[in-house]
Design a protein around this nucleic acid. Structure first.
Lengths: 192, 192
DNA sequence: GACTCGACCCTAGCATCGCTAGACAAGCGA
DNA sequence: TCGCTTGTCTAGCGATGCTAGGGTCGAGTC
């Protein structure tokens, strides 16, 4: 049995290597540069090996997305737990969210922009995705206001942040006023 | 001279045909299906003809985006001018914006999601894009509130709508609660 | 009215993409 | 030691965006 176990360990290790390498390559040169050939070369295996771990490129993007979701949830919780009061937590959340998107553009794309073949907003949605939304809900639910469903409020707030993140990164919004936009958004949306 | 004029007319006509065909194909089967070969076949010319009009696929996407921007601006102005009061105009704007995005997903992608090689938020930004933003500003500036720069408010409101539009279309948000989200967004963001 | 010459378009092909079939080698269990 | 499973690689398929080069057709000139 120990032989099989060793093989499974090695296999899992290689899978982590694939995901980490794909992410690294995407952050360095964009997802367009993440071709199966380049990826295979970087992990020092041939192309078909990738397909013994993932169905195709889409699933690799999906794996990066799941990893990113877990990181984002952790980052959000860390930031909000260090802040004081409902409003403080919302401000911290908004900042860390946009910061995460700006610092990890490839991961953010994998999560919300690209097709990673993951089911969203459904029962069989992977746990990391549900948990990332839950992390947002924990702080945003506090400031939804009377008579407003916390989840609905979270969706709206999240969508606003997502809009700011994507439009800024796509060059549609100038980064200079980013802080002022966040301030305005929190002031208006959050009920404290 | 009339021969040259005729040729120029025919050339311009063919360019319109290319853009219209690309848009049609994208709306029918998605932008992935818009390959230079398929596009060439549909307009009944060979591939290289496309490159005598546009630098490449990117520029074709950009042309569709410009066409879409003009349409969106017109739609927004039509909807807001038919509504009463500042709040009524904002509600109408939000609805028509999301409606436009839902009805013309390919055009919306060309505008805000894909790389059409267009310069945004700059001095040399094409007129249709500036005008589309201006159309939003006309109604949203009314409800920015005291001490808030109308353009900044417009950016935030626009980003929120963009977030709702993209997340909904990507399956990240369920369409059922769309109306409630718009209502909440307008209630909180707009100062009436 | 014949001819020259330039503008225009098409065929063919390049490098690269995601993905797969089939040959081959390595290492396990008997 | 042998047989077989498991795993990996080489090679190749169809399709992508884009381009080079040849050929045709028609406008303008003598």
């Amino acid at each position: 049995m120990s032989v099989q176990e060793r093989k499974q360990r090695e296999r899992a290790e290689r899978e982590r290597l694939i995901v980490a390498t794909a992410r690294e390559l995407a952050e360095q040169q964009g997802w367009d540069a993440v071709t199966t050939r380049r990826l295979a070369e970087r992990i020092e295996y041939s192309q078909p090996v990738l397909y013994s771990h993932f169905r195709g490129k889409r699933e690799i993007i999906g794996a990066v997305a799941l990893e990113g979701a877990a990181e984002m949830a952790a980052a959000v919780r860390a930031a909000t737990s260090a802040a004081d009061g409902p409003r403080g937590r919302v401000v911290a959340l908004a900042r860390i969210y946009l910061d995460f998107a700006a610092r990890n553009p490839a991961v953010y794309d994998a999560l919300f922009q690209l097709d990673g073949g993951l089911p969203y907003a459904r029962e069989d949605t992977p746990e990391p995705l549900k948990d990332a939304f839950a992390a947002l809900l924990e702080s945003l639910g506090e400031v939804a206001g009377d008579g407003v469903h916390p989840a609905l409020f979270t969706e709206v707030f999240w969508a606003s942040l997502h809009g700011l993140a994507t439009l800024t990164r796509a060059g549609r919004l100038l980064p200079e006023d980013a802080a002022r936009r966040v301030e305005l958004l929190v002031d208006r949306l959050a009920v404290v």
